[in-house]
């Protein structure tokens, strides 16, 4: 089943919950496991939070999120037209944060990388940042069938 949606919303922190709820609704037809669903919600939340607090530094701006489904492969692209990242490699290091005010863990990219199958960050200073992540969903029915087969055989 292939599908695609694209959303644009203001860079407000309350839209973090909105974005992850949309992503959860979008993948619902795949009947994801509880863990897969939570992984996607968390990764989306991280990407949108980055756009709000680092891209736009809490100033008004527009964040876009595109969700594409090709079979059981989900692609999430979160883009902002904010300040951009000077040193992507440094920004992606666990525990590194450029946030000087507030309590940031520096774990955003590490979480996206751990909870999704792939992560790509493109950024240009003064232009903005695009984060693309992919995740392949397991086939529950097939999993159950193979489990049953193993059980029957033993």
């Amino acid at each position: 089943m292939d599908n695609r949606i694209k959303l644009e919303f203001l860079s407000l922190s309350q839209n973090e919950a909105f974005a992850r709820a949309c992503a959860a609704a979008f993948i619902a037809p795949l009947d994801p496991t509880i863990e897969e669903l939570a992984d996607v919600r968390t990764a989306v939340s991280e990407a949108v939070t980055n756009a709000v607090i680092h891209g736009y530094k809490h100033k008004p701006g527009t964040v876009s999120m595109e969700l594409t489904l090709t079979g059981r492969l989900l692609r999430v692209k979160v883009e902002d037209s904010g300040c951009g990242i000077e040193d992507i490699e440094l920004a992606m290091q666990p525990f590194y944060t450029s946030g000087t005010n507030g309590e940031r863990s520096g774990m955003g990219f590490a979480v996206m990388r751990a909870f999704m199958d792939s992560l790509k960050v493109e950024s240009e200073v003064g232009i903005g940042t695009a984060v693309t992540m992919e995740k392949l969903f397991s086939d529950k029915l097939r999993l159950e069938e193979s489990k049953k087969r193993v059980k029957d055989e033993s």
Partner: peptide, 9 residues
């Protein structure tokens, strides 16, 4: 639900 902002907290 918790994301890395919770870790920061």
């Amino acid at each position: 639900f918790m994301d890395s902002s919770g870790i920061g907290l």
